[in-house]
Structure formats: structure tokens, C-alpha cells
Simulated scan of single mutants.
Amino acid sequence: MSTLSFSEQEIIVQSQGFLASDMNGEKVMLSIDNGKYYNLGAVGGRIWELVAVPSTIETIVTHLVAEYEIGFEECRQQVSVFLQQLLGEGLVQVQAG
């Protein structure tokens, strides 16, 4: 697992080609291209919703800190790891800001 962190200038956005649905409070997705199934969970689903529009990691973390009981730095680290996993699966794209 990569421990790289996203820079403040990088923009993260959903990749196209995924069907997403809410199931029992968790976000589940299906890749149209390869048929692979993903369960992002509740918080992962919220992150997925936040990257529906191009967002920086700082924007994502700011939203999550306001919604959940977590400190900014801990949230930033966990979100960064999660986004790296999504990036590795091709679920999100990173653009220079």
C-alpha cells in the first residue's frame, strides 16, 4: 500500500464507468468495463460523493472533519490512503490544479 500523500494543488475526481448505489447505508459500485464489484462503506461512500465534483484533498477533509468526530491531520492521512487505493483501482483520477 502506498503512503504517498496528495498535494494541495492536485484535484481528485471520480472516474467514469461505474454504477453506484446505496445499500444499507454503504456505497456499493460496479465497474461497467470489467464487472468488478466494490463496497466503499459508509465513509468511503461519502468520499465518493465528494469527488463527484473535482475536489482537492483539503476540501474533502474539511467536509469530513465537519461531519465526523475526527481530527484534521488523522482524517487527511486516512483519506489520502483511501484515495490512493481508489486511484490504484482506477476509480478516481488526479489532475494538476
Results as ranks from 00 to 15, higher is better:
Ile47Gln: 12
Leu30Ile: 06
Ser55Phe: 03
Gly17His: 15
Leu30Arg: 03
Leu64Trp: 00
Glu26Gln: 01
Ser15Tyr: 01
Val13Trp: 04
Glu73Lys: 14
Gly25Asn: 11
Cys75His: 04
Gly25His: 09
Thr56Asp: 04
Leu19Arg: 05
Met1His: 13
Leu83Trp: 01
Tyr38Gly: 08
Val51Gln: 08
His63Arg: 11
Val51Pro: 02
Leu40Ala: 02
Thr3Gly: 09
Ser31Asn: 05
Gly97Asn: 01
Gln9Lys: 13
Phe72Val: 14
Glu58Cys: 04
Val53Glu: 06
Leu91His: 08
Glu69Ala: 12
Met29Leu: 15
Ser80Val: 10
Leu50Asn: 04
Glu8Pro: 07
Glu8Thr: 13
Lys27Glu: 04
Val43Cys: 09
Glu10Gly: 11
Gln93Asp: 12
Leu19Ile: 12
Lys27Met: 14
Ile47Val: 15
Val61Lys: 02
Thr3Leu: 08
Ser21Trp: 06
Glu8Leu: 11
Gly88Ile: 13
Gly71Thr: 12
Gln95Ile: 14
Ile11Ser: 05
Val51Thr: 01
Leu91Met: 13
Ala20Gly: 07
Gly45Phe: 02
Phe18Gly: 10
Leu19Cys: 07
Gln16Met: 09
Ile32Glu: 04
Gln14Leu: 07
Ala66Thr: 03
Leu50His: 05
Phe6Tyr: 15
Ala96His: 14
Gly90Val: 09
Ser7Gly: 10
Gly88His: 06
Ile57Asp: 08
Leu50Glu: 02
Ile70Glu: 07
Val43Thr: 06
Ile70Val: 11
Gly17Lys: 14
Gly25Val: 07
Lys36Cys: 06
Val43Glu: 03
Glu74Ile: 10
Trp48Val: 00
Arg76Met: 07
Ser7Leu: 06
Met23Lys: 03
Gln77Ile: 12
Leu4Thr: 03
Phe72Ala: 10
Glu89Leu: 09
Ala42Arg: 05
Ala20Thr: 15
Leu64Ile: 10
Glu58Phe: 01
Ile11Phe: 04
Cys75Pro: 08
Ser15Thr: 08
Trp48Ser: 06
Gln84Ser: 10
Ile70Thr: 02
Gln9Cys: 14
Gln9Asp: 15
Val53His: 08
Val61Met: 04
Glu89His: 10
Ala66Gly: 14
Ile11Lys: 15
Cys75Arg: 06
Leu30Glu: 03
Ala52Asn: 00
Val92Leu: 07
Gln93Ala: 01
Val65Ile: 09
Ser31Leu: 01
Asp33Ile: 07
Leu87Val: 02
Glu74Leu: 01
Ser21Val: 14
Lys36Asp: 08
Ile70Lys: 02
Glu49Val: 15
Leu4Met: 12
Ser31Trp: 10
Glu73Ile: 14
Val53Cys: 01
Val13Ile: 13
Leu86His: 09
Gln93Pro: 01
Glu8Phe: 10
Ala20Ser: 08
